[in-house]
């Protein structure tokens, strides 16, 4: 897992993708920083993270996940991976954790804004930590969904579009029936910005992540038999 993780993380920053992802995050985060805190004179960072998660991840996650398996499949490099003694599980986890680390980097960068605000008012540090934890969990779930999309097509664009749709669709499906709120990542994130770490939210986000990772592993293993 370590080998794949290192190489993947390096690739993010050898290509512009890593920088673009961080750049988009910072732009979206800054815009909402202006709208939610400065414009309204509020020290509530929770709303800021919520809005960034809602719109920022929608752009960043497809960018990070689209090439994961699609590119390997198209270039044939998956032959190198799958004929190596490494297990499919360790390859999938390596790729997944590399993308998560890119998100972690953005989160660390976002702390700067909290520091700035702390000069002008009292910020609630535990709430911010809870929100950041929620943000990370949502991002992980979104990445696992994107990874799954990437493992079913060898076209990066199609992979990105599928990821985008899978992330957006629940917003509207919730209007049809409440059942869909369980797959709507934003509904699971809603309570974190109030400093509320609800076990049910954590469990459902983590289980979405684990489920998507498992499906990805199964799909890749299955392709070996079908291909």
């Amino acid at each position: 897992m370590w080998a794949v993780f290192k190489k993947e993380l390096k690739t993010y920053f050898l290509s512009p993708i890593g920088y673009i992802a961080i750049g988009i995050f910072m732009v979206v985060y800054s815009v909402f920083f202006y709208l939610t805190t400065i414009m309204s004179g509020s020290v509530d960072m929770g709303n800021l993270y919520y809005a960034t998660a809602r719109y920022g991840l929608l752009l960043i996650v497809p960018l990070l996940t689209m090439r994961m398996f699609s590119e390997e499949r198209k270039n044939g490099t998956e032959q190198l991976l799958l004929t190596s003694p490494r297990s499919v599980t360790s390859i999938v986890l390596g790729k997944f954790s590399a993308a998560v680390v890119v998100i972690l980097i953005t989160l660390i960068l976002s702390i700067i804004y909290s520091v700035i605000i702390s000069f002008f008012g009292n910020i609630n540090i535990p709430t911010i930590i809870a929100t950041m934890l929620g943000f990370l969990l949502v991002a992980m779930a979104a990445i696992s969904i994107g990874m799954l999309a990437s493992s079913i097509t060898e076209n990066q664009i199609i992979s990105a579009i599928i990821t985008f749709l899978l992330l957006v669709a629940p917003w509207f499906l919730v209007d049809i029936s409440d059942i869909f709120s369980s797959i709507n990542l934003m509904d699971q994130f809603m309570r974190f910005p109030y400093g509320l770490i609800s076990i049910s939210d954590v469990i459902s986000l983590v289980s979405i992540t684990i489920m998507c990772i498992l499906i990805t592993i199964v799909l890749i293993k299955r392709r070996k038999a079908v291909k």
Binding site: T11, N75, G76, Q79, L80, T83
Partner: peptide
């Protein structure tokens, strides 16, 4: 088994960014 095998696939797939 895979540890004992070195494989050079058809069409030489490589990571071009490395």
């Amino acid at each position: 088994a895979k540890k004992e095998i070195g494989y050079m696939p058809e069409n030489v797939p490589l990571y071009y960014e490395l």
